[in-house]
Simulated scan of single mutants.
Amino acid sequence: MSMESMVKAMKTKVGNPLRKLVLIKLADNANDQGECWPSYQHIADQCEIGRSTVKLHIRELEKAGYLRREYRRKGELNQSNLFHLSLDGGAANALGGGAGDNPPGAGDNPGGGAGAAPRTSHPSEPVKEPKPVCETDPQEGFAVFWKLYPRKVQKAKAEAAWEKLAVTPEMFTVITAALARQVTSIDWLKSNGQFIPHPTSWLNGKRWEDELQPAAVAAPSRHSGFDQIDYEEGLERDENGNFRIAGSGQ
């Protein structure tokens, strides 16, 4: 995990809470060069959302210039994409813009960097890099937390509670990811935020471990599983951005 990428991701405004959660997850997996290669399913499992939803938000992040995807193959098999995060300047730093997904079974994406042989030796999921045994900067970590927390009361007490926790990089990741989920929960959105706990109570009570009901709860349906379908499977994009059957060359 790159703490620098995590802090930048938390400060980046992407206009959608689930998109922000996906960006935070990518930053959590990124190395110090802003590179990571988690699979779509791994991101979906960690963020507790559908695989197709992950792909949608990654496309939007790429269009906005916050990341670039490098498609990788090993022989005839696709491997997880290599993601290059670009969180310093958004669209100004985008390389190539929002390319389409490289679906299972499709050919190499033109210009996607799939031929970069050294990348194909990586495992499908990122390996955590060794980190020095140290704590995060308490002031910097609290400043990020305070900016994100929606109920800003009793700042001095909240900062004291933060320092008492002695937040580690791993703990910081858990706290910020949980906060990103809870700000969209029913308990926090109802009654104009009346039931959002004070930040001091939230920290002292380790409320990031709470399991809250998401804001949008759909009624049970006989029609399920559509979010797990990859509607682009077996297709690829031509140079004009149009879909065609993979390998047809037409």
Rank of each mutant, 00 (worst) to 15 (best):
V14N: 00
V22N: 08
L26A: 00
A27H: 09
D28Y: 12
D32K: 01
D32H: 00
Q33C: 12
S39W: 02
S39H: 10
S39I: 05
I43Y: 00
Q46L: 14
I58M: 10
E60S: 09
R69L: 10
E70P: 00
E70I: 15
R72E: 01
R73D: 13
N78P: 03
N78G: 06
N78E: 03
Q79R: 06
L82F: 09
H84V: 10
L85E: 08
D88C: 03
G90Y: 08
A92P: 01
G96M: 07
N102T: 12
N102H: 12
P103F: 11
G107P: 09
D108Q: 09
G111K: 01
G112L: 01
P118T: 08
S121L: 12
S121H: 09
V127R: 11
K128C: 08
P130G: 00
K131Y: 02
C134D: 08
E135P: 00
E135A: 12
F142N: 05
F142G: 02
Q154W: 00
K155E: 04
L165Q: 14
V167F: 11
V167E: 04
E170N: 15
V183N: 02
D187M: 07
K190D: 10
S191N: 14
N192V: 10
G193C: 11
Q194L: 12
F195C: 04
I196T: 09
H198D: 15
N204F: 03
G205D: 04
E211T: 09
L212G: 02
P220K: 11
H223G: 04
S224F: 05
G225W: 03
F226W: 09
G234H: 04
L235P: 01
D238Y: 04
E239A: 14
E239R: 05
N240R: 13
N240F: 11
G241K: 07
F243G: 05
R244G: 15
G247H: 12
